[in-house]
Structure formats: structure tokens, C-alpha cells
Nucleic acid binder design. Structure first.
Length: 196
DNA sequence: AGCGTGATCTTT
DNA sequence: AAGATCACGCTG
């Protein structure tokens, strides 16, 4: 098992969105339960020039962790019912993050099914709100990073460019023309949302 | 295709 | 203080 180091995140955000595909994200619960999934879909959000990004107009209490060191976790609440998981990019004091939109479940599947109230596999983490539900990720995770004992990102071979799909981001109204959504072509766990 | 549900941010 | 806006998921 090779653990991804902080240096890995010190690349431009859109590039990071591609490089995160195929990597394995793990959360270890306080009771030792291991929840693990392969990242199959991401979106890049940049502070400057990207009106869809929470931080496009500067720092606020909510988006604070987006300005922290690369590899920090940014979690926020939306639509009155969902938490979103992001991994911070860009140097400290500059905003940027990659939204993790979908994963393929690898470990802790029965726990995830219990969390989600489902028996299937392909609907377990095929959306940004679904995967935080499956992994029991909430506001307490905001501001943590991937280098402690609670989270880790495990390295995996880079996905070849011809297997990566690109498109517009889902569910936003501003800066919608930017092709900053990245996903693994043909993977059944990619979300079914349509670009706006 | 519609709506729940609540924090956040902008405008008055 | 009020209102609009949301990086969504589920039902029908």
C-alpha cells in the first residue's frame, strides 16, 4: 500500500481532478471500521475566475478550509440535506478544490449499504451526496486532512487519458461552459446527473 | 418534473 | 430582516 503524500496535491486543480481518478479514498471510523472506494468522478473548482466556486469572491467563514494546505478536506452542507466532499488544491491562501462526485465501493460495503438503506452496489456512491452518506461524512470532517489516521488516499496507476471523459459540471448555473468534470469512461459508478 | 430542507450570502 | 440561491436525491 502506497500512501499519497501532500506533494501530490501541489499541481493545478484541473490536473488534480484528472489525477485523482482511480485513486482509493479510505475513511477509518472511530470503531475501526474501514470504508474504502475508488474515485471515478471529480469536478474542479477554482477561486479565481470561476463563479461556480464558493470562494470566487473571497474568503468567508464557510469556505475557510478551501484556503488551507493542499490535501485538506473541505466538507459543506447543501440543499438542506447533503454534505459534499472536496479535496483542497492550490497553495495555502489560494482557493481551489476538487469535488469528489462518485466512487466505486471497495471495502466496508455492508456498512455503506446499511447507511444508505440499499442492497445494491452501483447506487451506493454514484453521486456526491450519496458517497458522503455511505461513508458517514459530516461537518466534523471539514478541515481535516488526508495524512492522519482517519483518512488516507492510496496510490494507484494513473488512468490513461483515452479512458478519461470530460464534460461540463453538474448542477451549477454560473461558469457552466467550463469542461472541468472528469470521469472514468464506462465505469458504472459514475453519477447519472446531467450537465446544466 | 417537482419538491424537501437549511445554511449561507446578498441586498434592503 | 428578508429573500434568493444552491457543486442533490428521491418520488411519481
Amino acid at each position: 500500500m502506497v500512501r499519497v503524500q501532500r506533494q501530490f496535491f501541489e499541481i493545478p486543480t484541473v490536473e488534480l481532478a484528472e489525477k485523482l481518478l482511480g485513486k482509493m479514498f479510505t475513511r477509518v471510523l472511530p470503531d475501526g471500521t474501514v470504508l474504502k472506494g475508488k474515485i471515478v468522478e471529480t469536478e474542479a473548482y477554482l477561486g479565481e475566475g470561476d463563479e461556480a466556486c464558493h470562494a470566487w469572491r473571497g474568503q468567508t467563514p464557510r469556505n475557510h478550509s478551501m484556503f488551507c494546505k493542499p490535501g485538506t478536506i473541505y466538507v459543506y452542507f447543501t440543499y438542506g440535506c447533503h454534505y459534499m466532499l472536496n479535496i483542497v488544491s492550490e497553495p495555502e491562501n489560494r482557493a481551489g478544490a476538487v469535488l469528489i462526485r462518485a466512487m466505486e465501493p471497495l471495502e466496508g460495503i455492508s456498512f455503506m449499504q446499511l447507511q444508505r438503506g440499499l442492497n445494491t452496489l452501483t447506487c451506493l456512491m454514484s453521486g456526491p451526496g450519496k458517497l458522503t452518506g455511505a461513508m458517514a461524512i459530516g461537518p466534523e470532517c471539514n478541515g481535516r486532512d488526508l495524512f492522519g489516521s482517519e483518512f488516507l488516499l492510496e496510490d494507484a496507476p494513473e488512468i490513461p487519458a483515452e479512458l478519461i471523459g470530460t464534460g461540463r459540471r453538474i448542477g451549477i448555473s454560473r461558469s457552466r461552459e467550463l469542461p472541468w468534470r472528469k470521469f472514468i469512461l464506462g465505469n458504472p459508478h459514475v453519477s447519472k446527473g446531467k450537465p446544466s
